[in-house]
């Protein structure tokens, strides 16, 4: 079947199988920041944004994104560098495999939550698993990221 969609602002017209998952659709087109970490929608690695909303691309059919706008980390390079550097400054990048999905959700969280507490941050991001860091360094980095832009920074 034929679908038309916008990925990181660019128009794609693609011929796909009806049962193709969005994660495979994106990886096949070269958006390899989108990672698969499980087969049960538990790990958050494949998080992308579809029309402003963070979704697990392993749980969405590519057919359903016809006419929609998808954003992957490749489309948010400037923002990724800002958060990424804060994470690296904490030493919390480690293996990096969970980073793209995690960053997608952090960016969405910043838009959705105003002045979140530590507990609210942890709850919002609880679907993003990480096996390396123990999460503390990520939390320190996110809090610095949320402070950016305040006080005219």
């Amino acid at each position: 079947m034929q679908i038309k969609c916008y990925i990181n602002g660019r128009l794609f017209n693609e011929d796909i199988e009806p049962d193709m998952l969005l994660i495979d659709f994106l990886r096949n087109l070269g958006f390899t920041s989108v990672k698969r970490g499980c087969d049960t929608a538990n790990c958050g690695l494949c998080t992308v944004v579809v029309n402003e909303k963070a979704v697990l691309s392993c749980s969405v059919l590519a057919a359903s994104i016809n006419e929609k706008h998808i954003t992957t980390l490749e489309g948010l390079e400037d923002e990724a560098k800002i958060i990424g550097e804060l994470i690296a400054n904490e030493g919390a990048d480690q293996c990096g495999f969970c980073s793209p999905g995690f960053l997608m959700n952090v960016i969405t969280m910043k838009k959705e939550l105003e002045n979140p507490t530590d507990e609210e941050i942890k709850h919002y991001l609880s679907g993003n698993l990480c096996r390396c860091t123990g999460y503390m360094g990520q939390l320190r980095a996110i809090k610095k990221y949320l402070e950016l832009g305040k006080d005219g920074e």
Partner: peptide, 19 residues
Amino acid sequence: GINKLDSMSLVTGKPVYTD
């Protein structure tokens, strides 16, 4: 406490893993 050499490619989702 120096940042990892490969940090920025990892955190910005660059194609650096086997698959």
